[in-house]
Design a binder for these strands. Sequence first.
DNA 1: CTCCGGTGCCTTTTT
DNA 2: GGCACCGGAG
Length: 745
Amino acid sequence: MSIYDTLNEQQREAVYHTEGPLLILAGAGSGKTRVLTHRIAYLIEEKGVNPWNILAITFTNKAAGEMRERVDNLVGFGSESIWVSTFHSTCVRILRRHIDRLGYDTNFTIYDTDDQKTLMRDICKYLQIDTKIYRERNLLAAISAAKNEMISPKEFRLRAEGDFSRQKIATVYEEYEKQMQANNALDFDDLLVKAVQLLKTQPDVLDYYQERFRYIMVDEYQDTNNVQFQFVSTLAAKYRNLCVVGDDDQSIYKFRGADIRNILNFENVFEDARVIKLEQNYRSTSTILDAANAVIRNNRGRKDKTLWTDNGQGEKIEFRQFDTGFDEAEYIVGDIRGHVDSGDCSYNDNAILYRTNAQSRLFEEKLVSANIPYKLVGGVNFYARREIKDLLAYLKTIDNGRDDLAVRRIINVPKRGIGLTSVNRVQEYALQREISFYEAVLGADLIPGIGRGLSRLESFAALIEHFKEEAGRMSILELLEDIIETTGYIEELKTEGEIEAEARIENIDELKNKAADYEEGCHERGETPTLGGFLEEVALVADIDSLDEDSDYVVLMTLHSAKGLEFPHVYLAGMEDGLFPSYMTVTSDNPEELEEERRLCYVGITRAMKQLTLTCARRRMVRGETQYNKMSRFLKEIPMELLSTGMKFEKEEKEEETPRQSSWQQAKQAFHTKAFSSPRPVQQFKVAGGNGPGYDVGDRVRHVKFGEGLVTAIVEGGRDYEVTVEFDKAGTKKMFAAFAKLQKI
DNA sequence: CTCCGGTGCCTTTTT
DNA sequence: GGCACCGGAG
């Protein structure tokens, strides 16, 4: 019996089809990773393909790691020479060898989102852009979108002809690229863009990699964007052995430039492509699957497929509605506690999924007080924390003095009396001389008007030079420890005396561990650890990578992060219109946005293996304000007979979708519904709990001094209500109801 | 130069 | 509710 006998017919077909383009449409839980790993094994063992000639691309390090492990178990010999890695690290690996051809240094640094923002702020200041009109995030989004379409600053400028605002963005884009190059830095998009550029302009490089990667496999293909498509198709152009696996129903990264057409049009681009559908699901009960199918059926523009399973029906899907998000969290945590205590499952069988990161806090609080171990995925990335970024900026400065951003970040951290004035002088001088910021610091004595700052700059330069010299003979861990020691970084944290200091110090210890891990890993693989290598690894980790299936904790994360994972028991929290689907998509006039949310819902449901629990709350605190939400429209798409609502909720409530409540609340609900469909909706309907102040959003009121006006918001604030009124004459005022004494007209 | 307090904006999702 | 930016005082 061979390892391939355990596959079903379609899976086996996909494994055996090794030559030419292949599209595997793999529904959720249909065993696509199994197919990929077995396919790799088959290529090597049955087709005699050299492992060296195989490239497998995933989106996250975690997925890459898992695939690597499974391939290792399947393939006896030579599996280590298969490239299994993410898009980004694949590109980095190529760029580290050849990017000098594009005018960059091979020890370029990688900018994360924070770095990009900092740079953009500087650029806006320098170009005197009014960031009230052109927001940094929008500028960055425009640049990212351009890069995803491989549009250069030059071309962007051409296309902006006659459009003032686009012209302005073009100017920013040009400057951004200029500075990135000057800093010898690449952002995430650049990694792909430059790699494609390299392949397209350097025939010998292209030839090398085309010869090398004769068999290419891409996972999660539905989430690829244009550059990624270019990258893959360019590499595969010669041998055409391109196998892509994906599920159009799980495409949830449009906001990041993912183009669902990559998968929908695969057969058109590669005319001889073979298409295989995997529709048998091995993960979930039929109840869960039926619910998922029922929801996704409401989307148009998808490849038709219906998942089926011969797993049993299993338990019904639990649905609960609560008064508040607080109650919701309490129920879920209590439910987990109950299941674990009764021995039904362990903590790591449970995942709590939600739409937005902000929702995690309530669960965290309840989990802590219930003494349940949990792992929070997402939110503030470890490497985005201030103390970590500071120390990494030291390492970056030591490794690549051309990264101005890093140097500027640490030049006065810990404080050494180098203020804004000195920094600006250095900056100006560097700009004039067209040298890097750090080079200017090195020659600080030549800077006009530097005055008192000189000695401080000199000692900073001496410090960095000292570290540079040490970096040559020390391990990364030792270097890190010396930086902390010599600069007095931790002392500085302590004197700040915040409660946070302790947590920050813990984080620093964690960073030291990561450095040690990295060096150990290198030694195991027989590689030499380098500072650049460490920085690169650190730049490309995603939070999800740290998830460990073997640790016994409850997992908390967004629906986006959950893609590709599975859990015996899934809690899908916050199933409310305005939250999920999000307010943005509910009010948008582009129905595609709602479809993406629905796919997200589909992803969420199909994460569950045995038991799915859906919850929502009638009111919830959002940004410190109470918000009232109806239950999610996606809930209504799930057939009633699949749901168990506990004893509290009756059938007609579900159909009416208005739970029993006071007539006052019902009136709110009615208004709320209207608000969503009105052409200019009132910003998120807000009301105070309890009895209300006697008037409501949308009412006309009279004030003794300001005259008549329209109530635009009522916010519960402690014992009183904060009322916002747009007065006809006096403008918009915020006031407390108890003092304002507003009369309803 | 640094510290502190006030203001505004934010949140959809992330390699 | 919280973070980041700005302006003013010491």
